[in-house]
Simulated assay, not measured.
Amino acid sequence: MTNNDPKTQYNGIILLTSYLQRVFVAETIYQRVKKGHLGIRYSEAKALLDETYTILPVVEKTKQLSVAQKAQLQLITEKTLALMKGYFKQMPLSFNDKLALVGSSLYGEQMMNNGVIRLGKLFNVEVNKDFHMRTQFYEDRTKMVDFLVNSIHHNEQPDVNLVKPIETWVVDILRQKDYVLADMNKISEMIGF
């Protein structure tokens, strides 16, 4: 597949969107659980997501990227790369930091999973059934994260049975940190700029 292949480009946009979702959800969680958290990164991630969401339906309809859309996506990708540089916080991590990292990773992966399923429908490509099977997995885990965030936001003691998985999952996410950051470099190649 070349850089002008519509499926590859669409997949690149999905990957970009999943990274924006990571930053957006992490910042949303910080706003909910940390008193006085400045939402500068939140506002920037939301604006970039909104911008990407204006391009996505057009690409889904036309199944191609215009020169202007490609240029816009290149700027969005550069800004997303800058945001991702501050995504992983310095150690040691507080529980709120771990919750933001786990929650945003789950939401980002859920977006990527759903995007791949959508890609299959749009381009009439068979998608591995694992993607369909993961839908419920992500739904259950994001609900759990939402519940924890809501508990902390309302100054309630989080359920220990919900805290334990966060502690376990954050270790896996931190182990994949280099891969997560390196994977972002595929976006420009996939979209073709």
Rank of each mutant, 00 (worst) to 15 (best):
41 R>M: 07
23 V>H: 01
74 Q>L: 14
57 P>E: 07
55 I>K: 12
44 E>N: 08
77 T>A: 13
84 M>D: 06
66 S>N: 04
72 Q>T: 14
87 Y>G: 00
49 L>W: 08
50 D>W: 09
111 M>E: 07
36 G>R: 09
94 S>N: 09
69 Q>P: 02
67 V>R: 06
90 Q>W: 04
62 T>C: 00
66 S>R: 00
67 V>C: 07
40 I>K: 08
32 R>W: 03
96 N>F: 07
87 Y>N: 01
31 Q>T: 01
100 A>Y: 04
24 F>N: 15
40 I>D: 10
74 Q>V: 10
38 L>T: 10
88 F>C: 07
43 S>Y: 13
92 P>L: 06
103 G>A: 05
47 A>P: 09
109 E>N: 14
91 M>A: 14
74 Q>H: 15
108 G>V: 12
108 G>H: 03
44 E>L: 15
29 I>D: 03
83 L>I: 06
65 L>T: 07
89 K>C: 00
106 L>T: 05
53 Y>P: 02
86 G>L: 05
72 Q>Y: 02
86 G>E: 02
51 E>H: 13
81 L>I: 14
109 E>W: 02
86 G>T: 10
45 A>H: 08
86 G>M: 01
51 E>G: 06
47 A>M: 08
112 M>H: 12
31 Q>C: 11
39 G>E: 13
28 T>P: 04
71 A>G: 01
80 T>M: 12
85 K>M: 04
71 A>W: 04
36 G>D: 12
37 H>Q: 14
43 S>R: 15
54 T>N: 03
57 P>W: 01
30 Y>K: 13
89 K>H: 14
89 K>W: 01
110 Q>H: 11
84 M>K: 07
81 L>S: 07
67 V>A: 15
97 D>R: 09
73 L>E: 07
26 A>S: 14
40 I>G: 05
